[in-house]
Design a protein around this nucleic acid. Structure first.
Lengths: 333, 333
DNA sequence: AAACGGAATGTTAGCGATAAAGATCAGAGA
DNA sequence: TCTCTGATCTTTATCGCTAACATTCCGTTT
């Protein structure tokens, strides 16, 4: 900047101002500065700016997996809003592990993000302490935690799954199976299972649970779990899967065996992945509005960072109700 | 740090050293410093460290879309390697647009990343200039550009598609169709189409091209394009799609109409998405080893950043040959 | 006992930007 | 003519850490 200042004949401060939007620099001066800077091949150095201004323009987010298109959609929604507001997303990837999440949160906070987004409402004690002590807005997504750290953008996985069970019962299913991963790290999967069990007991339905290993669960594992369900002595009317990927795997296994869906067994998924719509029959699923979770979070953060915590946007809990998408896989012809 | 130094009774420099691996601090002193720091709720400030040490630990990457699981896999592979080496990925999302890429590259370079990864080999002139002038390792992925900016980790999309056409011919297909997006921003898609045309002409096969709008192309668009193919007067023996998503959409359309795959028409995709394996029949596809592209890039960068450009790892072009995965959709029973 | 060497710690001076406050100046109004 | 005002630009002093060099300390060697 000093070199440019010398070349243009102004002070470094003016050059600094020319590179920002909000500050007062004469139009002519600004143009000249930017032009000479470009000629000199100068690239603005954010690291220094970050330090002095105590603003980084970072928003950190931890998600369980990039592999899962639901979370990828959330990141996409978030990124779109934040990128437009000039903020840069810092992505961390916990692999469905709260200890890894803690490590990641610490690493990310060192970068001095202006806000922090985490997936889910379960964290280690130290992670909670770090988040609370950071003095920045914290948003928990994909969940409605009982004692939130800061803001919340999400929905109750248990309730959503309960609504799915209601639907299946009214569609005529009385004997159910739930296919899900083990719930070591995946709180959302565990919550869905919990919601399933609660609803099945409430409606006095027969049910069983099948576990298919640690998340992220794939189509292949869904197919494998379906083998177990179909081979079991007691038949089931409907299978509820923790995600559409598993559900599609289960559907494939039925087709392979000539088991008709939905006539012999209904299948429901979760997450409204593309595949739910395109499968034959279409998969009944719960659309969690993954991308909306991201963009809503982004909008909340942009408002918070602009107006501070007392702005109109400072609603602590923002619920995004999932939409039940009924399709061929649970509707008798 | 000054506060901690005072509390422990050492100089700030010693505290600084205690927070880094490679430096010499007495074991006892280090433990005490870290413990007191934790008690005081201190979180290391990378922004200052970055400025002074001129090292950020950032590696920036631009990808067309997070929506596409192939690129998401590349990011995942890259992130896994880099995260283990203590580096943080900065993700930017170009939306298949080279102008947006240029803007993004400039923004990202301001953060002073230690290396830059871009997708594809086509960039605006200014983007090339920025990349070359940054003085950091640059890796172009998912392509083998004719005049690379720096390092390359990828494959020839045209050649890979050529091999697919070879396979289809030997499987008995003589009249082909190619389903792809328009090639405004998606160079990879355009290269695949080019490879398709070249191979079809080389083998003297009849062929036609169907375009289904701007990328990213989805299952739905693949289905729509298949309508066009099936409704056309001239029948085709095989349809090659620019990606498995489009291919699966095409397959679904066939099933909807009762057109048998592969007996009446063969379908091939690209990218080895999960769905290719799980579809019925399985989709023949080209596995580009998306994740390996990411992890190979990561390993290259870790080696470069550790040993400098003259290390053994400094191979300029790293080719990752795609694997043809033949499945039921192109094999007559 | 003096000289030496290596590990542990301390001192000084920035990294490259910007917040905050002050200076300059042209044009408006008295 | 003189004061005043707002836009434009300058000066000064950091932001929080660490490179580079200096120093201390203690066990070894001669």
């Amino acid at each position: 900047m000093a070199d440019i200042a010398k070349a243009v004949g102004v002070s470094p401060m003016t050059v600094s101002r020319a590179f920002r939007r909000d500050t007062s620099v004469g139009e002519v001066t600004r143009k000249k500065i930017l032009q000479i800077a470009e000629e000199m091949g100068y690239v603005f150095d954010s690291t220094a700016s970050n330090l002095r201004s105590q603003r980084t323009g970072f928003v950190a987010i931890t998600i369980p997996s990039l592999n899962n298109s639901n979370f990828a959609d959330t990141v996409r929604g978030l990124n779109e809003v934040l990128q437009a507001a000039g903020l840069q997303v810092l992505l961390g990837y916990t692999n469905y592990d709260v200890d890894e999440e803690e490590r990641l949160i610490e690493q990310l906070l060192r970068r001095r993000p202006e806000a922090m987004v985490v997936t889910g409402g379960r964290h280690t004690d130290r992670a909670r302490r770090l988040l609370k002590g950071a003095g920045i807005p914290v948003v928990e997504t994909w969940d409605i935690p009982k004692s939130p750290v800061g803001y919340t953008v999400g929905f109750s996985n248990a309730d959503a799954m309960g609504r799915m069970v209601d639907h299946l019962q009214s569609a005529g299913a009385n004997r159910l199976a739930f296919i899900g991963g083990d719930d070591k790290g995946d709180t959302r999967g565990a919550d869905r299972r919990r919601g399933f069990v609660a609803a099945a007991e409430r409606l006095q339905l027969e049910f069983r649970l099948v576990s298919l290993g640690s998340p992220p669960i794939s189509m292949r594992e869904g197919a494998r779990a379906m083998v177990e369900v179909l081979d079991a002595r007691q038949p089931v009317d409907a299978v509820v899967c923790v995600s559409d990927l598993a559900a599609f795997g289960a559907l494939t296994e039925c087709q392979r065996r000539g088991v008709s869906v939905p006539d012999e067994v209904m299948i429901a998924g979760f997450g409204a992945y593309d595949i739910a719509e395109v499968a034959l029959p279409g998969l009944t699923t719960m659309d969690a509005h993954s991308m909306a979770i991201g963009s809503r979070t982004g909008e909340l953060l942009v408002a918070l960072l602009r107006d501070g915590a007392d702005g109109a946007a400072a609603k602590k809990v923002s619920q995004i109700e999932p939409t039940l998408r009924i399709s061929g896989s649970t509707v008798l012809r």
